[in-house]
């Protein structure tokens, strides 16, 4: 295949990575931005989303013979809600009791990481299990070539994508727009932004800060779970799948600017596309190395991130 189609393929793969990463990292950014909690268990909420998606789709398929598309739609609704509920419960039982103290929450979320991982191993097992995509039509893509009669369209062998991958990109974009609308144009978003700025004053104006915190922690986990449900038909659900999304989310959140959701999304697109291109042309390991070097450079030369605000 020529370089042009090869590059387009790499960018398409990178777009899928970027879409899922943007959702997952947005969850981490919201939690850090509001609670100042470095949630080391965020990758496990991603994993829980995938595992819940497997339980929902396989359960509906085996017990009620539900076709893949409606079963997947159910998973897309149930898995983030269930994951968000687990996270909100963890917030009430653990984080709120240690007063969201930055150092202690790191240790607490490391503990949470292992609890969730081992509980999943005990109940779901060590196998990697697939979730059937709701649709997966192969879409061949055209390319141009200059012949003796000028430019002409042709269909290079192997140059294409699937309808599901395009759906993942579109769905993630749609969900991020919904998230933006929620934060900017709803009463709940207003309450969340006010609480983020001044916890005491929010409380003095009737806002139940602890409930907002539990909701935000749940929302952050639900976003990770949404990313996982979207990607699980491409990957597989496994109890150790949370490590990579956690590392990549931290990289993206630091590059984007700690707590900046918009910066996180832009950084996710940059890192995701770069990951796709480097993985296709070189290797996936090199892509991770480059991302890690990028985050180190950002930490040295621009510690508040590319889009974050310098702290006073």
């Amino acid at each position: 295949m020529e370089f042009g189609p090869h590059l387009i393929l790499a960018l398409l793969e990178g777009s899928v990575t970027a879409a899922v990463l943007a959702l997952t990292a947005a969850g981490l950014a919201i939690v850090f931005g509001m609670l100042r909690v470095v949630n080391v268990a965020h990758g496990e909420f991603f994993m829980l989303g995938a595992v819940f998606a497997w339980f929902v789709t396989s359960g509906l398929s085996e017990l009620a013979n539900v076709p893949p598309a409606p079963a997947f739609l159910c998973a897309l609704i149930v898995a983030p809600i269930a994951t968000g509920a687990v996270a909100a419960l963890a917030d009430r039982l653990v984080l709120s009791r240690i007063g969201y103290d930055p150092e202690r929450t790191i240790v607490a979320t490391i503990g949470l990481l292992y609890v969730l991982q081992q509980l999943t191993l005990m109940t779901y097992g060590p196998e990697a299990r697939p979730v059937e995509a709701p649709f997966n039509t192969r879409i061949a893509l055209p390319w141009f070539e200059q012949g003796s009669d000028g430019w002409a369209l042709y269909w290079p062998w192997g140059f294409g994508t699937t309808s599901y991958k395009l759906f993942v990109i579109g769905a993630a974009a749609g969900l991020l727009i919904i998230l933006w609308l929620l934060l900017r144009h709803t009463r709940l978003g207003l309450v969340m932004r006010a609480t983020q700025q001044d916890r005491d004053m929010a409380s003095a104006f009737g806002i139940r800060v602890n409930r907002v915190y539990a909701m935000v922690f749940g929302l952050g986990a639900a976003l990770a779970a949404l990313g996982a449900v979207l990607v699980v038909p491409i990957q597989q659900a496994h109890y150790l799948m949370g490590g990579d999304p956690l590392l990549m989310s931290f990289i993206v959140v630091i590059i984007g600017g700690l707590g900046s959701v918009a910066g996180t999304v832009v950084a996710a697109i940059m890192i995701g596309l770069a990951d796709g291109v480097v993985s296709v042309f070189f290797s996936a390991t090199l892509a991770k190395i480059i991302a890690t070097i990028a985050v180190a450079l950002v930490l040295v030369f621009r510690p508040h991130g590319l889009f974050g605000r310098r702290s006073a």
């Binding site: 207003l190 932004r193 700025q197 001044d198 004053m201």
Partner: peptide, 12 residues
């Protein structure tokens, strides 16, 4: 709430 607008502060 400095990052919020005047209208949003009143809304709170």
């Amino acid at each position: 709430f400095g990052a919020l607008s005047v209208a949003e502060n009143i809304e709170i």
